[in-house]
Design a protein around this nucleic acid. Structure first.
Length: 715
DNA sequence: TGTGTGCGCATTTTT
DNA sequence: TGCGCACACA
């Protein structure tokens, strides 16, 4: 370790970071660490402080540090905070997302990784059209092999680290799928395309196959820091492990209680593996919460204590108890939305900042009612998680033209050959695609309409060869192709024209990293960083799914749809897996801990789902909160009379008179089942012999029965 | 070659 | 109920 420069005092530097004892212990730990950082305990601060400490106090060159996050947003935030602390040349510190860093490695070592240096990244949309094209080339039966299923199979296999050759195929359909996957692999290779999972997979293969380069990186990254470690999947863990020299120090920050992506392959078991295999044997807990009031934390702690499968920790605060949580019962989904809108409107009228208010929900479909009520009450709102900028159709088109300036890309070609319309018919297109190389065919084609397109391509490529800037190329791509003019000529596409112009300015503002080819980097960036441009600025109430809310915080939070079957979701209930409900509970934990000061728990007695009115008992999660932290006695779970006051409005009865002999079961009826005990009918479907009823039971959740055969009786 | 109609389907999804 | 997608049509 070198001597620190004169005039620099490590203790002073450490003090300037203002860390609490646990944070400080973590940030300055000399060995490998797993930091269990509860919500709002300053995990980003600890991560960035450690980087600062390594560079400033331990004289660690930035190039010896690797810091990985999941989102570009988190990476950007961290980079900014580190830069505030210490200065270093951009690019020296490897800080980025898993995908971003793997991508960088593959670009630098394309040849060694067995890739063409012009490889393109496919986002999910690109991947889907690619698969669609492949299936139609193969003449696959679209009924039997829907593109979405094939894509699901391929991605699932990849996320488990399986190549087509290794994919299991114990029965016929799986064998067919494996074959399709095999075609996909070779087509990707032929066309130089990498999907998201492939960035990880190729990076892993590369490290495995290139011993010297692997050793080079393992020696370089003496410190490996990982954010949100509970969300790592198998591929990410394998990649991290390949970077191990045997002496690297791993510093992982995570929270098993906030693991909400298990359904996508995230495996919190990686925490145990990290400790055992990568020497992060010290666990340091951050339990001092700086975000929420005592009542909110108490609710979160009590709720999550119901999960059996957890490492365990308890959040505390030095602040006061704050106001108690409020339950907002409503008769219907509509009424719930109305309540939310009223309360929000009143808060804003009383001087609350709209963007410090969030309305959270389990499913995107719930936003519709909320939006309607907010509009009616004159409350400005912003929805997170809509279509991202680079996912928009017109931007996809613009990107395709830009890509064609750089590479022979068949999907891009097919996307824009007739956009704007050029009158190139199916026949002409078939003749172009008939022989192997479309681009050669375009060059040779005698059709005048194709000639127009050929000239556009030639023009763009010439421009690129002449060294035009990214912005010039992007402008040329949308202007010379006629794309911008096309949208400008149609009043209904004015918004699209704006976006296309925005695209050009985005290209102008884009700065490639050192050593990157700008067009290539911009295209990769468009695939990898589609987000961020969400919603826009201004005072507006935030609407989003709970998943989207992870990592954010607001003064006032509404959690809506707290009903059995919605949250926790029906799927998590009828799956026998206890794990599924635990993940829902973690989701609830994430939702609660988003709130700084005020938390509203909303639920409705009835809700229209897929056009049918359903009755659902209040969520079990409400019962799991400590009564003392809540302003009203909580409703009793649906054991006996579930819809007693205060939300006792009768379920909407059907308009028509009941059939003769009365109806066997109606929503709201209390029934008895020999195995599950007492329950409440929540919905029904079909009639006569076909009548199916959904019944909510206290312990096993919602079950569906065929009324004619089920051993149900009236209670 | 874009538009219409009807069917089927329907958590969450950082990259 | 409402949306996206596949196919039929002028």
């Amino acid at each position: 370790m070198n001597a620190p420069p004169a005039g620099f005092s490590a203790p002073d530097f450490l003090d300037s970071l203002r860390l609490n004892p646990s944070q400080r212990r973590a940030a300055t730990h000399e060995g490998g660490v797993l930091v269990l950082a509860g919500a709002g305990t300053g995990k980003t601060r600890v991560l960035t402080s450690r980087i600062g400490w390594l560079i400033k106090c331990r004289e660690c060159p930035p190039r010896n540090i690797l810091a990985v996050t999941f989102t570009n947003k988190a990476a950007k935030e961290m980079r900014g905070r580190v830069l505030d602390m210490v200065s270093f040349r951009t690019g020296e510190l490897a800080l980025g997302t898993f995908h971003g860093i793997c991508h960088r490695m593959l670009r630098i070592h394309a040849a060694a990784a067995g890739l063409d240096k012009n490889f393109q990244i496919m986002d999910i949309q690109d991947q889907k059209s690619f698969i669609r094209r492949m299936l139609s080339n193969l003449g696959a039966d679209a009924e039997e092999f829907p593109p979405a299923d094939c894509m699901g199979y391929i991605n699932a296999a990849k996320e488990r680290g399986l190549r087509a050759a290794d994919a299991p195929a114990h029965y016929e359909r799986a064998r067919a799928m494996r074959e399709i996957y095999g075609h996909y692999e070779s087509m990707c290779r032929n066309e130089n395309k990498l999907d998201f999972a492939e960035l990880l997979l190729s990076a892993i293969d590369f490290l495995q196959n290139q011993k010297e380069l692997r050793e080079h990186y393992a020696a370089r990254f003496r410190h490996v820091l990982i954010d949100e470690f509970q969300d790592t999947n198998m591929l990410q863990y394998r990649w991290l492990k390949l970077l191990d020299s045997g002496e690297n120090l791993y510093f992982a920050v995570g929270d098993d209680d906030q693991s909400i992506y298990a359904f996508r392959g995230a495996d919190p078991e990686n925490m145990r593996r990290l400790r055992a295999e990568l020497r992060a044997d010290e666990i340091i807990r951050l339990e001092q919460n700086y975000r929420s009031t005592g009542n909110i934390l108490g609710a979160a702690n009590a709720l999550i204590a119901n999960n059996k499968n957890r490492i365990g920790k308890n959040l505390t605060t030095d602040g006061g108890a704050g106001t108690r949580l409020q339950t907002i019962p409503a008769d219907s989904g509509n009424a719930e939305a109305e309540s939310v809108a009223h309360i929000a409107a009143n808060k804003i009228a009383d001087g609350a900042r709209a963007d410090d208010i969030a309305v959270l929900y389990r499913t995107n479909a719930q936003s519709r009612l909320l939006e309607k009520s907010l509009i009616e009450n004159g409350v400005a709102y912003r929805i997170y998680g809509g279509l991202r900028f680079f996912d928009r159709l017109e931007i996809k088109h613009a990107l395709a033209y830009l890509r064609l300036a750089a590479a022979d890309d068949l999907d891009s070609f097919l996307r824009v050959i007739n956009t704007p319309p050029r009158g190139i018919g199916k026949r002409t297109l078939e003749s172009l695609t008939a022989e192997g190389n479309v681009f050669a065919a375009v060059e040779k084609s005698g059709a005048p309409k194709v000639a127009v397109f050929r000239e556009i391509m030639r023009g763009l490529r010439r421009l690129r060869e002449d060294g035009a800037s990214l912005e010039e190329l992007a402008r040329a791509a949308v202007e010379q192709s006629g794309l911008l003019a096309h949208y400008e000529s149609r009043p209904e596409d004015a918004g699209r024209a704006d976006n296309v112009r925005e695209f050009v300015s985005a290209a102008g503002q884009f700065r490639a990293e050192e050593g990157e080819e700008p067009v290539q980097a911009f295209l990769a960036n468009a695939a990898l960083e589609s987000g961020e441009a969400q919603g826009g600025e201004g005072a507006a109430v935030n609407l989003m799914t709970i998943h989207a809310a992870k990592g954010l915080e607001f003064s006032t939070v509404f959690i809506t749809g707290l009903e059995e079957g919605l949250f926790p979701s029906a799927q998590s209930l009828d799956a026998a897996a206890e794990n599924a409900v635990e993940e829902e509970r973690r989701l609830m934990y994430v939702a609660i801990t988003r709130a700084r000061k005020e938390l509203f728990l909303c639920f409705a007695a009835t809700r229209i789902i897929y056009g049918q009115t359903q009755i659902r008992p209040p969520s079990r999660f409400l019962d799991e909160l400590p009564a003392a932290a809540i302003d009203k006695p909580l409703p009793v779970a649906p054991s006996v009379a579930p819809f007693a006051p205060p939300y006792s409005s009768p379920p909407p009865r059907r308009q028509t008179a009941p059939p003769r002999g009365g109806e066997p079961y109606r929503p709201g009826d209390v029934v008895h089942h020999p195995k599950y005990g007492k329950g409440v009918v929540v919905s029904r479907q079909g009639k006569g012999e076909e009548l199916k009823v959904e019944v909510a039971f206290k312990h096993v959740g919602i079950k569906t029965f065929l009324a004619a055969v089920a051993p149900l009786s009236r209670a």
